[in-house]
Computed example of a mutant assay.
Amino acid sequence: MALFFDKDWFDSRLADRGLSRAVLAAVAGIGEDDLALVWKDQRELSAAEVAAFAELLGVTGAEVALHAGISTPTPGADPLSRIAELERRVTALETELARLARTRS
């Protein structure tokens, strides 16, 4: 387990998928300011955020937790909470897409 947040590992995974930190923040349901705090190791991730990062990056929650710092929780496998979390993330993505569409108009 990483003692501190491994920003290089996360940036590399994002680059491999052609994604930005803004997309990661939207999927996790957090603001870009909060994500910046995570990158500076000044804010811990919740289990739900770990799960969101893992799905977007195509890795396991355990792998995200391994690189996210010493006290990062690994998400559980409760299917009902997973469905609720997925619905929340879809809403966040739709909101982000609408915002991007407005800025391009």
Rank of each mutant, 00 (worst) to 15 (best):
A25N: 08
L35Y: 10
V23I: 11
A26H: 10
L57P: 10
T60V: 03
L57Y: 13
D41K: 10
H67F: 09
L66V: 01
L57R: 12
G29C: 09
F53Y: 10
A62Q: 15
G76R: 04
P73R: 03
A77P: 00
G31T: 15
E55W: 03
A47I: 08
A26T: 05
D78H: 05
R21D: 14
L24F: 01
E63A: 09
S71P: 00
W39G: 00
S46Y: 14
L45Y: 10
P79A: 06
L80A: 15
V38A: 08
A25E: 09
K40C: 03
G29T: 11
L24P: 02
T74F: 01
T72E: 11
L45E: 07
L66W: 12
A54Q: 06
P75Q: 04
V50P: 04
T72D: 09
S46D: 14
L56Q: 11
A22E: 13
L35A: 05
A26P: 09
E44G: 15
P75F: 03
L80Y: 14
E32L: 05
A26S: 14
A26Q: 10
Q42H: 15
E49S: 01
V64Y: 06
A25Q: 08
A22I: 00
A52W: 10
A47Q: 09
G29S: 10
V23C: 05
L19A: 03
G58E: 02
A51S: 12
A28K: 12
D78G: 00
A65P: 09
L57K: 12
R21S: 14
T60P: 08
S20C: 01
A36L: 13
A28D: 09
G18Y: 05
G69N: 04
D41T: 05
E32V: 11
G69D: 05
V23W: 04
R43V: 00
A62I: 06
A68C: 02
E63F: 00
K40E: 14
G61Q: 07
L35V: 03
V27N: 09
L80R: 15
A54W: 07
I30E: 04
A22W: 01
A28W: 12
E49V: 00
S46F: 12
E49P: 01
A48C: 01
P79M: 03
V23D: 11
E32M: 08
V59G: 02
A77Y: 06
K40Y: 08
G69Y: 07
A36T: 14
H67K: 13
L80N: 14
L19H: 07
Q42L: 14
Q42M: 13
V27W: 10
A48K: 13
A48M: 08
V50R: 04
A77F: 05
L37C: 00
D34Y: 14
T72F: 09
A26E: 12
V64I: 13
G31Q: 08
S46P: 02
D33M: 07
A77T: 10
E63L: 06
I30Y: 07
A36V: 08
A68D: 06
A22C: 02
I70K: 13
G29I: 10
V38E: 07
W39P: 00
L57I: 12
G61F: 07
A48E: 15
L37M: 03
L45V: 06
G76L: 02
A68T: 02
P75H: 07
V38M: 09
P75K: 01
D41S: 13
A28E: 11
E55R: 11
R43Q: 13
L24V: 02
V64E: 07
G76A: 05
V64S: 05
D34M: 13
E55C: 00
